[in-house]
Design a protein around this nucleic acid. Sequence first.
DNA 1: ATAACCCCTCTAGTTACTTGAGGGGCAAGG
DNA 2: CCTTGCCCCTCAAGTAACTAGAGGGGTTAT
Lengths: 136, 136
Amino acid sequence: MTDKNIRIGELARLTGTKVPTIRYYEQIGLMPEPLRTASNQRVYGEAQVQRLRFIRRCRALGFSIEQICELVELSSETERPCEEVDILTRRHLDEVEAKIADLSALAQDLRALSQRCQGGGLISCCGVLDGLNKSV
Amino acid sequence: MTDKNIRIGELARLTGTKVPTIRYYEQIGLMPEPLRTASNQRVYGEAQVQRLRFIRRCRALGFSIEQICELVELSSETERPCEEVDILTRRHLDEVEAKIADLSALAQDLRALSQRCQGGGLISCCGVLDGLNKSV
DNA sequence: ATAACCCCTCTAGTTACTTGAGGGGCAAGG
DNA sequence: CCTTGCCCCTCAAGTAACTAGAGGGGTTAT
């Protein structure tokens, strides 16, 4: 594999990304537009492989596309204080933790609801549906 | 307030739902089509208020629209065993708990990443970005 | 008449992809 | 040469659950 001779299919395999997703990332500007062959096929190099890997790691960590755009931009400004990266990461962690709290409360409510099921009854006296119908 | 004389705005206020959302629910068949006035305005009754409240409680508990459709249908078949309601609720609880587990693992990874930040440095030697760039 | 408020339909946007239609190019095999 | 299999391309629309906005009508009070 030499530099600058990777087709989109191979890039997809190298990075665990789907081909349409790569095109999507290019469309929204997250991935730079690559050079093309005479027959209009995209050609990628090692730097673009690394970029896409970066993006996929961020996605795996739940960063939004917008946040990733910011991280990509920040990472190219090497003389800049890295405080903004820190802030962005912490804010995202806070969001994830808040979501966990929401879901945990929701799970609690669902458990309470589920326990209302006596088993073996009919819809007409179903504890779950009763709970969902109640105007508490 | 008499039966069958509630306009959509009032229904929205009674149930904490947005007007467009009520129209959306009607469009997808979750809410039955109401009667209309001579000037084509929707008119709701108490049964529909209860239906929308049911839907909103289910949404609050994270049930998908599809799941709610099933619950609505099941609740009208009063002579049917309520086992299906139980199964649907438990399955949903499992999904929520799986999501919590996913997010918790993700939060763990984010904490580890965040701790790589030494503070006061530059982007060129940022621990977070380093971690995102690493091909571990 | 105007302002304030309510209602209507229709269309398109949000987020991060994903799918499918319709088409071209290339290499190997019959 | 034709066919097959595989890869690539663009474009448009779908997914889930809403939400926002354009453009219009109706009612009441000032």
